[in-house]
């Protein structure tokens, strides 16, 4: 009884901290995204609000909070209001098994990566519900694309992660990080470069980011599945998109880049530095590559990532069987 109460309290505290992390992450990412976009296009980005435009995200969120929540006609309003909440809530759970620091893991779960992959699937459901309930052709097309894309990109993602799981013999993220060393050549990326590459590509596809942002392709579908959302509904989608990006970056850092381990001194800062470097990379490729066509998107997945992932998994299994 005491034990379960302790775990309950631990989960509550962890979820509260994770909400803080999500909101802080959204503020940082809004600023970083716009600033990087500006610098790549040789303009200053947000500049006028606060020193170097640092308060821009605060202004944006105030605007979203104060905005009218507009309900278009002919929507299925239960699903319409359920979808943003459903996008937001699973993300809270996803951060639980991530080892942020040597002792700071919100909840030790033996099959942490299974939990992450299982609940990450709920995000697609929210996109589908949002697109379906909006009763709008653009939203519906965006939702259809979101489902086809996310379901497809989950497979190479799992195959890439499974290779690392086979190699380290554990599904616990903390154990996988614990087996890696302090220096880059001791990280899993040195042993699994192909898996890292596959994960990096499917991570962009999984989070619906450019160049794989087909579900919300502005030039084709206005805003895709969240066309009809305004105010806080849109803000929740926005928040969960950035939180999903952060999560896949944390998983990437833990699986391939040694998590909290790094030169000089292990600690929580290494996790965050690595995760935000990956986030920066995602933003960078967003402002570099044009959007792919939908058949190209699925061809990359089914013709390249999936066979390569299977090959990599098979090689890893053989090597683990005969060498270890």
């Amino acid at each position: 009884m005491d034990l379960s109460l302790a775990i309950f309290v631990q989960i509550i505290v962890a979820v509260l901290l994770i909400i803080g992390l999500m909101v802080g992450n959204a503020v940082v990412m809004v600023y970083m995204e716009r600033k990087v976009a500006g610098f790549i296009q040789r303009r200053p980005g947000p500049y006028e609000v606060g020193p170097w435009g640092t308060l821009q995200a605060v202004c944006d969120s105030m605007k979203l909070l104060a905005k009218q929540v507009f309900l278009p006609g002919n929507v299925d309003f239960i699903l319409y209001y359920l979808a943003p909440i459903l996008a937001f809530l699973p993300v809270l759970l996803l951060f639980l098994p991530v080892p942020f620091g040597p002792i700071l893991t919100p909840l030790h779960i033996n099959e942490g990566i299974v939990l992450i992959l299982a609940f990450a699937g709920l995000g697609v459901l929210s996109n589908l519900l949002a697109g379906w309930s909006s009763n709008n052709k653009y939203s519906l097309l965006g939702a259809g694309r979101a489902v086809a894309q996310t379901v497809a990109y989950e497979i190479p993602m799992i195959l890439a992660l499974l290779a690392v799981v086979l190699q380290s013999g554990s599904m616990d993220l903390a154990k996988i990080v614990g087996q890696q060393g302090q220096y880059p050549w001791q990280w899993n990326i040195a042993l699994q470069p192909l898996a890292f590459f596959i994960y990096l590509v499917s991570l962009v596809g999984e989070t619906n980011r450019a160049p794989f942002d087909l579900p919300e392709a502005e030039s084709e579908l206005t805003a895709g599945f969240h066309t009809e959302y305004s105010g806080m509904g849109f803000a929740l989608f926005f928040l969960s998109e950035y939180a999903n990006m952060l999560l896949v970056s944390f998983v990437c850092a833990s699986f391939f880049l040694g998590g909290y381990k790094g030169p000089f001194l292990d600690g929580i800062w290494w996790t965050f530095i690595k995760a935000y470097l990956i986030m920066f990379f995602i933003v960078w490729i967003r402002w570099t590559f044009p959007r792919v066509r939908f058949d190209q998107l699925l061809n990359i997945n089914w013709k390249w990532l999936l066979p390569l992932g299977l090959l990599n998994l098979w090689l890893t299994a053989v090597l683990v069987k005969f060498l270890v």
């Binding site: 990087v36 500006g38 960078w284 570099t288």
Partner: peptide
């Protein structure tokens, strides 16, 4: 060619801004 694209935008990222305030 993807790497070439990244290097171009990377160079723009660190080069000075053109905007006049």
């Amino acid at each position: 060619s993807l790497l070439v694209g990244l290097s171009i935008t990377g160079r723009y990222l660190v080069s000075p801004r053109k905007t006049i305030h």
